[in-house]
Structures are given as C-alpha cells and as structure tokens.
Simulated scan of single mutants.
Amino acid sequence: MSLKDRITEDMKNAMRAKEAERLGAIRMLLAAIKQREVDERITLDDAATVAIVDKLLKQRKDSHQQFSAAGRVDLADKEAFEIVVLEAYLPQRLSADEVTAEVQAIVTELGTCGPGDMGKVMGAVKQRLAGKADMGLVSAAVKAALAG
C-alpha cells in the first residue's frame, strides 16, 4: 500500500470515527498532495509524498512557535495536533548521532574542507537523507563538520 493510499484510508477511518480535527488535518495533507499532482500533471510516489508531509510539518512547527509566542494557545494547540497527525506519515527519523555520522561520511567522500563548501555538501546530504532526517538538524551538523 502506498503512502497516499494509507493517508486516504486514514481519512476514511477518521470520517467513520467522527474525528473532526484529525479529519481536517488529513484533508489538508491530501489537498496539498492533489494540488501538486494537478499542477505538475504527475502521480506522486512515496518519496514525493514524504517531501510534502515534511514541508507541511515545517510550516506547522513555525506556526506553532509563532502562535505560542503571541499567546494564542488555542491556535498553538491546533497546530500541535496537526504536527502529531503529520508525523505519523513520516519514515523513522535518524537520531542526531546518526545524522552527524552520515554528514561526516559525506564530507569525507567529497573531500571538502571549509565553510565555502556548504552548498556542495548540502546538495549531497539532501539526496541521501531526504525524508530520513530533520533538515534543520542536518544543516547544523554540516556547519559543525565544515567548521571543525
């Protein structure tokens, strides 16, 4: 079963269980998937679907942070709930130590040596770790590896 099929099944289950908040979050995800498919006239595979989930998750985390800072607890709670729903569709994430080890291996493979090589390293890292790690964590690991 593809990830998109799993999301559709979860939407149907949420409708049957009358879980309005969960249903809203899943519909938002399916709408983003459908929008990309229509815009680009393609059918998304699991990797592209994970990329959309990752993008929406980043947006929700940013919104949660902004709402929390503004004292809007009601909206922050809604974003936090959507974060939990979206995280269920991501593959198992690498730990910080695993990310650091992968980044070190890539830096060694490429033979890079300084902060000026950040773009080259990030390009290689994104290909290898896309969907497997939080890119904020990856970026920090690349900066640390190139600085040291």
Score class of each variant (00 low, 15 high):
13 N>L: 09
23 L>K: 15
99 V>I: 14
99 V>P: 04
86 L>H: 06
93 R>F: 02
90 L>P: 04
88 A>C: 08
37 E>A: 08
96 A>L: 11
45 D>N: 14
55 K>C: 07
122 M>I: 00
2 S>P: 04
47 A>Y: 00
14 A>K: 09
78 K>W: 05
90 L>K: 11
62 D>L: 03
21 E>Q: 13
50 V>A: 01
137 L>T: 09
70 A>K: 09
58 K>H: 07
21 E>C: 10
52 I>K: 06
71 G>W: 02
26 I>S: 04
95 S>F: 09
100 T>E: 14
126 K>Q: 14
39 D>H: 12
103 V>W: 01
90 L>W: 08
97 D>Y: 06
123 G>H: 04
5 D>K: 14
87 E>Y: 12
86 L>F: 12
96 A>N: 11
49 T>H: 09
26 I>E: 07
126 K>V: 07
94 L>M: 11
140 A>I: 15
1 M>L: 13
46 D>Q: 12
129 L>V: 03
119 G>R: 14
56 L>E: 11
65 Q>C: 03
61 K>N: 00
37 E>I: 09
103 V>R: 00
120 K>E: 01
81 F>C: 06
123 G>E: 01
111 G>Y: 03
146 L>N: 01
26 I>F: 06
107 V>E: 01
9 E>F: 07
40 E>C: 05
102 E>C: 10
55 K>Y: 11
19 E>M: 07
59 Q>D: 13
41 R>M: 15
118 M>G: 03
43 T>N: 07
121 V>C: 00
59 Q>G: 12
